[in-house]
């Protein structure tokens, strides 16, 4: 409850700070809205003719794309602005103030920023998922599995991104690695079956993009059993625990820049 209250205050404050610069805020929002609409148009062109992609009907493949868009919206709105701050705050030593607060520093560094420009992308992704799920004929249980799978996917994407961002403690200017992850996640917009075997293995076992988009869609569509849903959730929680342990370990090496 305390953390939810904190999250609400963080996001209100972050929004207020961005809205201090009215023109920049409005332009950024407009640009994001146009880009999101553009993406939607591309999807329409690509998927409206109907096709078969690695054994997936277009409605099913669209669900995978919707999940990838959802992750992308979270990267734009929450993950990127927050995790970039780790690198910046290590650079100028202001991470000190976060470490001195009696709250989880990982929570603080993962949630303090909120970029409203992620909202148009979030709306488009939810629209895509809603439309694709409907077109693919998901029943109530399917929607529930999809919701759980999507939540696990978001958790997993966050945990992997946080793991990468944590290396800033040593390498300082390493934030591009999170953008790289953002791009890799975007490769998950198509079902992994559409890719060649080596890339498929990479997307499953090296950077677990498979668990972020294709697997939740497969679970929702009933292509995989409910046991797989538990596996996806377990993988997410496992990587989240790993990210927490790694953050604590990394802080041992925090040198607190400048005096």
């Amino acid at each position: 409850m305390r953390y939810l209250k904190l999250l609400a205050i963080f996001w209100q404050t972050s929004l207020a700070a961005r809205m201090e610069y009215r023109t920049a805020f409005l332009l950024a929002f407009l640009e994001a809205a146009l880009e999101a609409a553009g993406k939607l148009f591309g999807v329409y062109l690509f998927y409206s003719n109907g096709f078969d992609l690695g054994g997936w009907r277009w409605q099913e493949a669209l669900l995978v794309l919707g999940l990838a868009s959802l992750l992308d919206a979270f990267f734009i709105g929450v993950f990127n602005p927050n995790l970039r701050r780790i690198s910046e705050m290590v650079q100028d030593g202001t991470l000190d103030f976060v470490l001195l607060k009696p709250v989880s520093s990982q929570f603080w560094m993962s949630s303090q920023q909120f970029a409203a420009v992620g909202l148009p992308f979030l709306l488009v992704s939810l629209g895509l998922i809603g439309y694709a799920g409907g077109a693919a004929g998901l029943d109530a249980a399917g929607w529930l599995r999809l919701g759980l799978g999507a939540a696990a996917a978001l958790l997993l994407a966050y945990a992997v991104a946080f793991l990468f961002a944590t290396t800033s403690i040593w390498f300082v200017k390493i934030f591009n690695v999170v953008y790289f992850l953002n791009s890799i996640v975007w490769t998950g917009q198509y079902p992994v079956q559409a890719y060649s075997r080596p890339f498929r293995l990479f997307m499953t076992f090296v950077l677990p993009v498979y668990f972020m988009t294709t697997a939740p869609a497969e679970v929702a569509l009933g292509r995989l059993s409910a046991g797989w849903l538990l596996a996806v959730i377990a993988v997410s929680l496992g990587v989240l625990a790993l990210s927490r342990a790694f953050w604590r370990f990394a802080l041992r090496y925090y040198a607190s820049a400048s005096s």
């Binding site: 904190l6 205050i9 404050t13 202001t94 103030f97 001195l100 709250v103 400048s258």
Partner: peptide
Amino acid sequence: ITLVMGNKQQLIWDLPVLDSLRINAAV
């Protein structure tokens, strides 16, 4: 405890002091 550093600041640069205090009150 607290640590005050003359060369670093915890206040949110673009917002009034009261907004930073609101966060501290919640923390």
